[in-house]
Write a protein that binds this DNA or RNA. Structure first.
Lengths: 341, 341
DNA sequence: ACATCGAACTAACGCGCGTTACTAAAGCGC
DNA sequence: GCGCTTTAGTAACGCGCGTTAGTTCGATGT
């Protein structure tokens, strides 16, 4: 007696059970309006489906219909705190469109990354999302040209591929403006490593807000540190210990939440209180830091989830053959109020 | 002129180009040892594949071979800091086995969860991984019975399904033992909400380590708080302010890193220094907290990545028809040394 | 009474591939 | 020269489904 491995029920089984042809079942499943199937026949078929526990085979369906119903997502590291939000945004939106998301990691290794592209193309993904941990320029492997691709949180060097990135300038403006609105005029800025889009954009927004408020821009208030807690600590020390106390900044705009974490320590160490003596605002809204710092860190969020969702939207348009109006879409960075301002 | 949408190259195209039959190409691709194809023919075929840029169609292959080559993973929330590590562990292992991982989220909603199961079964996933954010008992939708399932970080109420969970008792023992080894005898334990497996197990390990060291177990040193920074702060205050200073615990074992974060504040507020005046050990190894607290938090890691990998291993065995020796596998929680002990 | 027409289906092809059963030709012993 | 084995392939079926081009049958118009 051969063990026949519980063959799954197919559409033909349903057709036989309902006493119709397989074609009719297919029409009902795909709700084809042209082939008018009367209500009672449809009901009979649906009953058979229910009774037999039939599940359409997505693979076979994709093969016959020549569309795969799934997108691929390539991130550097699946576990990166940000990648995760991109995944969620993309996942939710894709799910809503009835698409599946195949998630792979490049592991920051060109070979792995190329393998990921290959695998996704073998799965016949209709389109690909390529997301990075931090905002920067990238170049993709050649395989990326075989299918629609949207870049998330990055952009390609020659600007040919569509991308969706955070609006760094507006974010820097938002943060600074929040401090200005709270009455601050001398605002220290602990910037990230110079040159990267985040540092360039946020500085631009910072200066723009100050200029708009009529506050003069004091270069000595801007220091660039490493984007770590220690870097933030060192930079904050430099800003706080400098010159006479009356000239000290009354607020700090930190390039990211990790530097803010270090800044907190420097501030507390000097017996100063947040936000009474000195206000602090961060960037990134890294939940585990910002929400659990005491007091809670007011910060500007990077819209990873929104970018993931937007990326899927763009993919949807691309695969539908609609031309995109803009190749680069920017997404706003919302202010997250807590208690440090 | 019909726009023929750049038809992808198929195996037949390769066969024609190489001057052989499609079957031969298939044999070469699947490296079938029985059908001996001479080396030069193989080379010719491989050259054609390269030249034409042929990519096998994974869907068609799955259909013909009746095995899908992919597993499904269902988590509560994709973005949960822990889910992410499970994903990574599972992903890496699956990838190494040549399997794809389809990742879905139940969003803590039974309807969504059932939909996720349905979708994964429609994709003909060979097996399913079901992972939770925190260690607990679960009950799965009926669809889960149609395919091999392995539970990760949870177990089903009737104990029928295979599962992989952290060894909470050993973890509690490890943490406490570390403090004992550092010379501590009065060790406060800020436990999690009572009743959950993590709280029960870790307490057991805590008591076991103390008993083994000949230290007596003082119930007043164990307080249960909410698993938050504020809860940890409150619990630490209670332990630190209680009784005469000489009777104060010299070390705190915190039920998780978030409570440790609160405990840090309580300790610093009292002018005490970590680890000189009081040692602290956490649980979970939540990177963003543990690594960036000052001083870095020594903690016990929940082995999410290892559990994800182990889960895939078990799925592999199950789908291969091998019976599992144990339904419940426990994974060790390793000690992560930083500077708080 | 007969042609016409829409409603309600169905037969048959093909999607890209794995696999089984078969064949043609070459080598080999006698 | 004949049977036998090995080598090197190939033809053909089917996986589960979408889709196109019909077909059948009763109702309608004249």
């Amino acid at each position: 007696m051969a063990t026949n491995k519980a063959r799954r029920v197919t559409m033909s089984d349903v057709a036989r059970h309902a006493g119709v042809s397989r074609t009719t079942v297919s029409f009902v499943l795909n709700e084809r309006a042209d082939a008018a199937i009367p209500e009672d026949t449809q009901a009979r078929i649906r009953a058979s489906i229910e009774e037999l526990g039939y599940r359409p085979n997505a693979g076979a369906r994709a093969l016959a219909a020549k569309r795969s119903e799934w997108y691929g997502l390539i991130t550097e590291i699946v576990t990166a705190p940000f990648a995760v939000d991109v995944i969620k945004g993309a996942q939710d939106r894709a799910w809503a469109d009835g698409k599946f998301l195949l998630i792979t990691a490049g592991d920051n290794d060109p070979a792995m990354e190329a393998a990921a592209f290959d695998k996704l193309l073998e799965q016949r993904a209709e389109g690909l999302l390529y997301a990075t941990t931090w905002h920067r320029a990238v170049t993709l492997p050649p395989a990326a040209r075989e299918v629609p691709v949207v870049l998330v949180n990055c952009f390609d060097a020659d600007g040919a591929l569509p991308s969706v990135v955070p609006d760094e300038v507006a974010g820097g403006y938002t943060a600074t403006r929040r401090l200005i609105d709270a009455g601050h005029r001398r605002i220290g800025f602990i910037n990230l490593d110079t040159g990267i889009p985040a540092a360039v954009g946020r500085l631009k927004g910072y200066e723009q807000a100050l200029r708009e408020a009529g506050a003069d821009i004091d270069d000595t208030l801007v220091v660039s540190g490493h984007a770590t807690a220690d870097g933030g600590y060192a930079a904050a020390c430099e800003l706080l210990d400098r010159a006479d106390p009356g000239h000290r900044p009354t607020a700090l705009f930190c390039g990211n939440d990790r530097t803010a974490m270090g800044a907190y320590d420097a501030i507390k160490e000097r017996g100063l209180r947040i936000p009474d003596d000195i206000a602090v605002i961060g960037f990134d809204n890294q939940e585990l830091i910002a929400a659990y710092l005491r007091p809670g860190l007011t910060t500007v969020a990077l819209p990873f989830e929104a970018m993931g969702a937007k990326g899927v939207d763009m993919l949807g348009a691309l695969t539908a053959g609609q031309p995109l109006t803009t190749t680069q879409v920017t997404v706003d960075c919302p202010l997250i109020e807590r208690s440090s301002v």
